[in-house]
Amino acid sequence: MQVLAQLIVSGVTVGMIYAVIAFGYQLTFATSKTLNFGQGDALMLGALVGLTTINFLIGLSLGTFAAYLLMLPIVFIFGLIQGSVVEFLGVRQAIKTKSEAGWIMATIALGIIFKNVAENIWGRDALRFPSPLPEASLDVNGVRIQPMEIAIVLGALGLMIAVEIFNRRSIYGKAVVATANDRDAAGLMGIDTRLVITFSYALSSMAAAFAGVLVAPVTLTGATMGAALGLKAFAVAIIGGLSSGIGLIVGGLILGVTENLTGYYISSGYKDVPGLVLLLLVLSLKPAGLFGKTAIKKV
């Protein structure tokens, strides 16, 4: 029983990371029906920029916790800029010419370029990220929980709730939702929908960068850390549905927990299989996702 609980706890943590990255996919899909397939690389870049920043701040004899907090806004700003660059270089033209696939290749290409750049700046080795919280685990009825794991869950939920509140309460957030509802009609309201799409890309990469510095202290940081996370988060986005916030969290948790259970009870070699089988099942039985509304593309 304790082993099971332990597996679930770590599954929930990694599941929340998937959910935040998938949330980023959802943000751009809502406004532009396009995705940044370099989302995993946005996470990796965020983590590495965060690493350099936090080490610099610690070098100024700041405590790790204070340095981590000060680092966050810098990583956020970096993510916003990085996402805008992706939209500007890879997506804008494809949307303008109504290209069905141009943005797919363009965002994958940008992701590879970002990875190469990161390898040249930070090297190919995995680097340790200083943990802002004590690394000793708390013992809850025999289940060990790292304080950083709690921070991951709270941080992930916090980010998603903050964006949701922004969308519901502020006029700018309403403009984003309006653009997602009906881009032409939003334009008639005086909303610059192209800017809204750039903004959704910026926010999407910011979410990924945040996920990067959340997960970095419990894993390791490096140029290759993003690829698998980005792909699995994509599976989560499909499983949960690209239109449902709750779907992402549920999808993330399902994938995170089944991975851990399979890894322990069956074989770590099969760790990735159940999630992907679930993905295939969802695609064949409920293509809009577990929580998505069915949308039939009119031709």
């Binding site: 939702v177 309006a178 509802n181 009906d182 032409d184 009609a185 939003a186 008639l188």
Partner: peptide, 8 residues
């Protein structure tokens, strides 16, 4: 076709 924003 009115084009109101249905989810708002």
């Amino acid at each position: 076709g009115r084009r109101v924003f249905p989810t708002q």
